[in-house]
């Protein structure tokens, strides 16, 4: 594949899709994310054509929702991950997918003052990436299994032949490290 896409480039491409319906920008996003989304879907789909189809559905949602992406407030990989994840849940579970609703009058908003969101977001993404790069492999492996293979923590424990308590404490350790890394940078 071609060289990696930086976070800023991905953001600019997604903005161009949302604002101008820019097909070349959409293709660049597809070249980068399409095969990654397909790999994510393939973790559950035995049939490659199912993974291909779910990837297409995700990219169509990216096209349709691009204008809703707030460049100051999120990074593109997170945004695309959540779209793919929700489509995967809907495809594999025959249940509803309850979620909170920020427009609900009972929703409790965050009253802490927003930082300089765009700058902050960029730095946080960078710090998170660095912190994940130095996570111990055993913790990273648990995160991958949690995110990619639709299985509970108790079945992960069985699969890795670990006590459930160890799985839970590794998860806690991993996120404690990531949170510390983000706080240290402030």
């Amino acid at each position: 594949t071609a060289r990696e896409l930086t976070k800023d480039e991905a953001r600019a491409l997604l903005e161009a899709v949302g604002r101008d319906r820019d097909m070349a920008a959409f293709e660049a996003l597809f070249r980068h994310y399409g095969p990654r989304i397909k790999a994510y879907m393939a973790r559950l789909a035995r049939d490659g054509s199912v993974a291909e189809e779910l990837m297409q559905e995700t990219m169509i949602a990216v096209w349709n929702k691009a204008a809703q992406f707030e460049p100051g407030r999120g990074n593109v990989s997170t945004w695309i991950f959540t779209i793919a994840r929700n489509l995967r849940i809907d495809a594999y579970r025959k249940t509803r997918r309850p979620d909170f609703d920020p427009n609900d009058p009972a929703f409790v908003p965050d009253d802490s003052p927003p930082a300089d969101a765009a700058v902050e977001e960029r730095q946080e993404a960078e710090r998170l990436r660095n912190a994940m790069a130095v996570l111990p492999e055993e913790q990273l492996e648990l995160l991958r299994l949690s995110f990619f293979n639709d299985c509970s923590h108790s079945s992960i424990a069985e699969r890795l032949n670990l006590p459930l308590g160890t799985v839970k404490s590794r998860i806690r350790l991993a996120f404690a490290k990531l949170r510390t890394a983000l706080e240290d940078g402030q």
């Binding site: 597809f30 990654r36 991950f81 990619f148």
Partner: peptide, 26 residues
């Protein structure tokens, strides 16, 4: 933060090539 971690793992996943006609179809 956890969703950011999920997004970062998606960046690092071993990609699965799309079908040759994939983008045209999309």
């Amino acid at each position: 933060l956890m969703e950011d971690a999920g997004g970062q793992l998606l960046e690092e996943i071993v990609p699965e090539p799309a079908m040759a006609t994939s983008f045209e179809r999309l």
